[in-house]
């Protein structure tokens, strides 16, 4: 190819970028979702957190605590699985913040911010794919649980309700991590703060043990802990004793997360220096 031809081609390509109408929020959300899917295609290792991690967690806690706490692992599994499912998915939500933090440090964040798009779509698109990832983690855990002897008395419908509650809660909780992802300056500090929040939240709950055995002051915390609220509802619905009050409580808790952290995330996203 001659230099002349190449210059002409370059000039043509530069001059021919006509301006289409700005994309609809739905279209830009889907574009961001497909970006997240492409990233999974190119870096499949990032799926470890929703595949291996749940398997390890379930096996580890079932056999570690099963004998000591409930006398038998099968019996403990009936109590533990719903809780550990909640805990695992809650912990995975943390990576949403890490991804956003990476975008900021690598510069693509600035490009997105100068595009004529509905900005929240950048986050919502990624969060939607995360919901798919959480579903995968949940299905793997429930599948493995069934093999190990988990018998949900609530049947398929009870498990489905529980699953929807987990996914909605996780989507809501993710906004907390996006807020932190925008505030923290490095991925290390973000990781540390996220862990500091997640560990007490997931362990000081009713996931592993019945809170009746705890000292009174700790019981108070366990009762208001959003993870306990969710674990309660999930456990009850999986075992066929769920109430609509429990669903309402989970939805309320989730809504509180969204109402506080979604606008805060978007404010920080727009005004990040």
């Amino acid at each position: 190819m001659t230099k002349q031809m190449n210059e002409e081609r370059l000039h043509h390509a530069i001059a021919s970028g006509k301006r289409p109408r700005r994309p609809s929020p739905l279209s830009s959300t889907l574009t961001f979702a497909s970006r997240t899917l492409l990233r999974i295609k190119h870096v499949p290792e990032q799926m470890f957190d929703v595949t291996l991690f749940p398997i390890i967690f379930l096996l580890m806690f079932t056999y570690l605590f099963g004998g000591a706490i409930a006398g038998s692992t099968t019996e403990y599994l009936q109590f533990l699985l719903p809780g550990i499912l909640v805990m695992t998915v809650a912990q995975i939500t943390m990576y949403t913040g890490l991804d956003l933090n990476n975008d900021i440090r690598k510069g693509i964040f600035d490009r997105f911010r100068t595009l004529p798009i509905w900005l929240p779509s950048a986050l919502i698109g990624a969060l939607l794919v995360d919901v798919v990832r959480y579903s995968l983690a949940s299905l793997i855990m429930i599948g493995l649980g069934l093999i190990l002897g988990f018998r949900p008395e609530g049947g398929v419908s009870g498990v489905m309700v529980a699953l929807v509650l987990i996914l909605f809660f996780s989507f809501s909780l993710s906004w907390l991590w996006t807020t932190l992802g925008l505030i923290m300056r490095s991925d290390k500090s973000l990781m540390m703060v996220s862990m500091m929040i997640l560990f007490p939240l997931t362990f000081v709950s009713n996931v592993f043990v019945d809170p009746d055995t705890l000292p009174g002051w700790l019981q108070g915390f366990v009762e208001v802990n959003p993870i306990s609220v969710l674990a309660n509802a999930v456990r009850s619905w999986m075992h066929g004793t769920g109430s609509f009050e429990q669903i309402g409580l989970v939805l309320l808790t989730s809504a509180i997360f969204i109402v506080i952290f979604a606008p805060l995330t978007m404010y920080l996203y727009r005004n990040k220096k």
């Binding site: 994309p23 279209s27 595009l115 798009i117």
Partner: peptide
Amino acid sequence: MISRLMGY
């Protein structure tokens, strides 16, 4: 991706 976000 960028073209889609521009509205193409």
